[in-house]
Amino acid sequence: MPELSAEPEALAGIAGGWIVVAEGIHKTFNRGHADREVRVLRGVDVSVAKGDVLVVIGPSGSGKSTLLRCINFLGPPDEGSVTFLGRTLTGAVPRFRPAERMRYERELRFFRTHIGIVFQHFNLFPHMTAADNVALGPTRALGLSRSQARERSVAELERVGMGEKANAYPSQLSGGQKQRVAIARALAMRPQLMLFDEATSALDPELIGGILEEMKRLAESGMTMIVVTHEMGFAREVGDRVVFMDEGRVVEEGPARSLIDNPQNERTQAFLSAILS
């Protein structure tokens, strides 16, 4: 599938540069219903360089998860653009122009197949075994053969220590195991960028460490990541840069250690002291 691999000039363009650049992202829920309108994002800019880990922190409702969904267009932004591997996409869908619509869908597929996401609530497919969960994307979106996909699926499951559970159904797995399968499922697409949406928030406390360990290993292997999390220890240790968001805006941004140890903005200070105490 040649149209899905990153074009050489695009890759050259990002060499040493940004994997993803999101600019001026606006997003409003219930748009057009004046009384129920919620402006979740009000002009957010973020960018991540190759191999970097960007950690996004902030109080709940600050728009962190929505930002991730704007980056892979699960919930396209109302305004602003995302440039990923040199390709730029906006939320304006060319609804009534078939040719452009097809091009748009192709770009969308490029984004989705090259950006992996791990959800807070795992979102595993309950009617498939762990191995089939992992193999679905490679067969249906990358066009791998069944046996190739199966091979890749088992390999990815083994990498996250779930090789023995390949034939188990999600209902037979613990929360931590489910999240490992979900990580394997995202990695099986060989993504260039991984998004983590509060991947440990729904886990029992004793299972959080294992998943964070997995994410750390992934970061060390050179994966570019955007991580939304409340785990400040992880942010400080694994993150390269940290973004603090509040009320739909980026309030403060900086190198992980210095921002967490020494926040400049008072809202950041208030948030960090509340969460660390």
Binding site: L74, N123, A186
Partner: peptide, 26 residues
């Protein structure tokens, strides 16, 4: 759950493939 659609779309499956492999079997 809406997360099922999100997960499927995030893997690059289109609308029809999402119906066929994720939504309808459930």
């Amino acid at each position: 759950d809406r997360g099922q659609v999100e997960a499927s779309r995030s893997l690059g499956l289109g609308r029809i493939a999402t119906y066929r492999h994720v939504l309808l079997p459930q």
